[in-house]
Amino acid sequence: MGLLDAGITKHNMLVTSVDNVLNWARLSSLWPMGFGLACCAIEMMATNASNYDLERFGIFPRSSPRQSDLMIVAGTVTMKMAERVVRLYEQMPEPRYVLSMGSCSNCGGPYWEHGYHVLKGVDRIIPVDVYVPGCPPRPESLIGGLMKIQELIRMEQIGISRADALKKLAEKSVDPRIIIERERTVVGA
């Protein structure tokens, strides 16, 4: 349930739970760390720029991990970079979220066999909340992933762990295929 679904009285009073307010504040100002590793970063920058305008979601890249809530691992993580990524992750204050963008950081991508220097999936070194497939993913996919992170934040409550929130998110998730099929039939008719 979103914050605006809560009851608003005539006296400009808004009655809701603390969880709701906290989650609303967090998911409406999700600041990613401004760093990119490869071609996915170009797509991430395009998403930040005016055509896709991530700022309408309150998402704006920060230049320090200490001011960031979200790490978008955008691109190929080399073995040399892997330790730096861990360091950056450790510098972020909690609660922190990780979005793995593109095939390389999901699983090694095109370098899975012969890329001797590529880490085969960033989840080998840091916990990942949302994976966005694609090579590179289009801005729409990245926005989809970011909205998944927002949904995850919406699942959070004081006193429940990230694992439980992820479990709740998985239980609540809808199969997009059903919606797509429905839209298609509407358009077709």
Binding site: G108, K120, I125
Partner: peptide, 9 residues
């Protein structure tokens, strides 16, 4: 292994 990270797929 490289610095404790598994290298092969």
């Amino acid at each position: 292994q490289y610095h404790g990270i598994k290298v092969p797929y």
